[in-house]
Amino acid sequence: MSSMTSLWFAGLLAISWQAGTARLQQSFDLSVPDTPHATRTDAGEQVFEELHLTNFAGTPLRLARIDVVDARSGRVWASFAGDALAGRFALIGPPGQASGAIIAPGRRGVVYLEWPTQGQHPQTLEHVVTYAALSGAATDTVRGGLAAVSYDLGPPLGPPLRGGPWVAIHGADWARGHRRVFNTVDGKARIPGRFAVDWVRVDAAGHTVQGDPDVPRNALGYGAAVLAVADATVAAVRDTMAESPSVSGNPKHSLDEDAGNYVTLHLDDGRYVFYEHLRPGSIEVQPGQRVHRGDELGELGFTGASTGPHLHFHVSDGPSTVGSEGRPFVLEAFDLLGRYEDMGRLGKAGWTPRPTGEAASRRDEWPAENAVVRFPE
């Protein structure tokens, strides 16, 4: 028996033993409200999912470990404990009084999980949660959250912009990043930006602006044409919002104004594509209009809830900017130049170049976190 097989078998036995000997008691209601989705990056295929835990016990419960297991074979696909678990955990509503992955009675917590498939294709998942009462050290387990993995990425999309370099800004571990922002506007909690990318233009030295950074028009990407990524029908347009004359003076916006000026495309395969924060007066299309891949839709700007000029781009299962579920996508082709390992360097210094031996030309991938890419001109 190989060492890898031995480790897997040992993990399976440990989980089976834990689940089989758990005491009968009140604990968590486990659910995975949205289908786990797999997508492809230069780091390989990964599954993204959210495990919801509602505490029905009469005491606060502390999460100690979460194992994602194969519902049929019991194989352990991923395990999270310690800092890896705490960094993926968030309470719904106000913060808890105690630090760590602790859920008080009647509260709901969410654990945002991302894990590699290691070249395999898991089909149906279960989740084994190891937990303890806040006042004690003994642990118990509960199993649940049955969910089937989706591998539907739809046809690859064309470039949303021309040239570059462009930084694909997103981060699964950002507490207020798109990946973790729920909107509950019509009786269901959804994450529209689950796979959203904010595109920011940089130069060869990593600068994002030329001149005063507080002036939106000084951003290197300001005014860049945004492009239809596929043949589609224009589903919605807004081009009525003004632009703040300064970045620092951008006011707060209501939820329905967060997207700023935008264009929504309804793709022929049923998906919806969103282009947000567009420049006032730049939108060239109307609802119902037929567009083709590569057509210019409008220009990158600074409208809505934005910390600086950029193109917010995401794909979802519905036409609402806030009331739909974010869906994975892949881009047909781009050149990978490198990535920002530390986003604090963005605008101040260059990126980390692509490792020697890693292919520059990428196909049918979702750009990895903070990748620096170039599109065809």
Rank of each mutant, 00 (worst) to 15 (best):
D231Q: 10
D214E: 14
N250A: 14
L336R: 09
F274E: 00
G338V: 07
L265E: 00
A219M: 07
F274Q: 02
E284V: 14
H292T: 15
A333N: 13
A224W: 06
M241C: 10
V234E: 11
E243C: 11
A305F: 11
N218R: 11
V247S: 01
Y272G: 02
R217M: 14
A242E: 14
G270S: 02
P309E: 04
G223N: 06
Q286N: 10
D256F: 13
T240C: 09
V315F: 13
N261M: 13
L336F: 06
H312G: 15
D214N: 12
V229D: 03
Y340N: 06
V330A: 12
G308S: 13
T264I: 15
G338Y: 07
D214H: 09
G326T: 04
L336T: 04
G281S: 08
A259D: 01
T321A: 09
E332F: 00
A225P: 10
T240V: 13
H310N: 09
N261F: 10
A232K: 02
G308E: 03
T307L: 15
S320P: 09
G260L: 08
P309I: 06
V263A: 03
D239H: 08
S282A: 11
F302D: 02
L227H: 10
E276T: 15
L220D: 03
R327E: 07
F274K: 03
H310S: 03
H310P: 05
T303I: 10
S248Y: 04
S324Q: 13
Y275N: 03
G270P: 00
S246V: 11
G298D: 10
S324D: 06
L227A: 02
P328K: 02
G281L: 05
F313L: 14
V229R: 01
S246E: 05
F274M: 03
A242I: 12
A236N: 07
H292S: 09
L297G: 00
Y340C: 04
R290S: 11
D295F: 01
V291P: 10
G298K: 03
L227W: 06
L331E: 00
A242L: 11
L337C: 09
N261Y: 05
V273S: 01
D295V: 07
L278G: 03
G270M: 12
E299G: 01
D256H: 10
G318M: 12
Q286L: 11
R238C: 05
P328N: 00
N218H: 15
V229P: 02
N250G: 05
D317F: 06
S254I: 13
F329M: 09
P216H: 03
S320M: 12
N218K: 04
S316C: 12
G281F: 05
Q286P: 00
V234D: 08
T233R: 15
R238Q: 14
E257Y: 11
Q289G: 03
L311V: 08
V237T: 08
T307G: 06
P216L: 11
Y340Q: 12
N218C: 05
H266K: 15
G301P: 04
S306K: 07
V330R: 14
V226Y: 04
F313T: 02
G270T: 07
V330K: 14
V285M: 11
T240D: 14
N261L: 13
D295Y: 06
D295A: 05
Q286T: 14
G301Y: 01
I283H: 03
G308K: 10
Y340F: 15
P251S: 01
G318P: 05
R238D: 10
A236W: 08
D269G: 05
G326H: 02
P319W: 07
